[in-house]
Design a protein around this nucleic acid. Structure first.
Lengths: 188, 188
DNA sequence: GTCCAGATAGACCGATCATTCTACTTGAAG
DNA sequence: CTTCAAGTAGAATGATCGGTCTATCTGGAC
């Protein structure tokens, strides 16, 4: 009912989410319009330009990715198992053929203008991800949640980089073992 | 004596090393020529094109960076202290104002053509870096050098990403603490 | 002095880029 | 039936891109 075939705005967001990730934010407007099956004018009416679409796509992707993290964390009962299970989900994510690394870091690197609206979106994503890590660590009464969150965040980003550059080395597993050390207690 | 002012080839490499890092490999040829104070024709005579210069710059940067890693490792006596000291050097590196993350990962992300010669250079760099980590780990009789090298490599890449995106959080220190756990033994 | 390789300076080309614009279609409201 | 907003299709624009080309200059080798 609420989806009598998505409108141009929705199709542009979907196409951007796919192409900006698969081919980078430097992908041409023509390719976006073709994949979204949308008229050129619609892009500028809805998003003001390509930069606006990039920011909007990152905003939507952040919502979905954070929901993905929430779902991954909700899959276990104990906070410690939840955080460790996160790296099992990352392992599956990396194994996907279309995995290309961290969307947000790639956008930051590609857009050298520090005032580009995309940077605010990537920064917000990282802040919200860190909030979730701290929440979990506090819930398990970790001695130093801030420090541990920094370490877990570093392990996540490192896993994504290693997964994008050399996938046969099972980086998520290496990161999981390190995460277990960060969280203390049993090794598995 | 051996430097009666560097020729166009050398100036192009220097300019590329600077600009490809500071503004990304997507930087225009005109900017490169201007910074190198070199005629347009020289670029194509010496490197065949922009792609050739990108690959040549990555090759030279890899040599210098590996020398940097060697120097960092040579600063201490015990293999364990050497590897830990590496993260102290990374801490200083990140603190630099012009630090912009990992040059090789940024190049890989920016060049979506999988056949671009730059990818071979970045892959070679990572392989050689990993060889050094394994060498150190073997020298300190680590139980599982391969696995530990993967973990240390992941910590290094994670440190560079975190340093590029949020520098006030002292990622190198967090990584050093994790590295100490990887290496076993005393905590500091 | 002559010659020539190598460098410089800069016009030029075709392709591609993001953006703007005009003209036409569609579908629902009044 | 008319109206009007929203969408489509695609030409046109100006800028920028990497790459090619011509013309000129410079500094040794001979």
């Amino acid at each position: 009912m609420t989806r009598p075939s998505p409108g141009p705005r929705e199709r542009l967001l979907t196409a951007g989410q796919h192409l900006f990730y698969a081919r980078g934010v430097a992908v041409g407007v023509d390719a976006l319009l073709k994949e979204a099956k949308v008229a050129r004018r619609s892009l500028y009416e809805h998003f003001g330009g390509k930069d606006g679409l990039v920011a909007a796509v990152l905003h939507r992707a952040a919502e979905e990715d954070l929901a993905w993290y929430d779902a991954a964390l909700a899959a276990e009962d104990e906070p410690r198992e939840r955080l460790l299970g996160l790296f099992d989900r990352l392992d599956e994510l990396i194994a996907n053929d279309d995995f290309r690394g961290c969307r947000y870091f790639a956008s930051d690197v590609a857009l050298d203008d520090p005032d580009h609206p995309a940077h605010a979106e990537t920064e917000a994503f990282r802040r919200r991800l860190r909030e979730r890590l701290i929440r979990e660590l506090e819930e398990m009464d970790h001695a130093d949640p801030e420090r541990a969150a920094n370490q877990l965040h570093l392990l996540i980003e490192g896993t994504l980089v290693m997964g994008a550059t050399q996938d046969e080395r099972q980086p998520a597993r290496a990161a999981r073992d390190l995460a277990a050390l960060v969280l203390g207690g049993g090794g598995a």
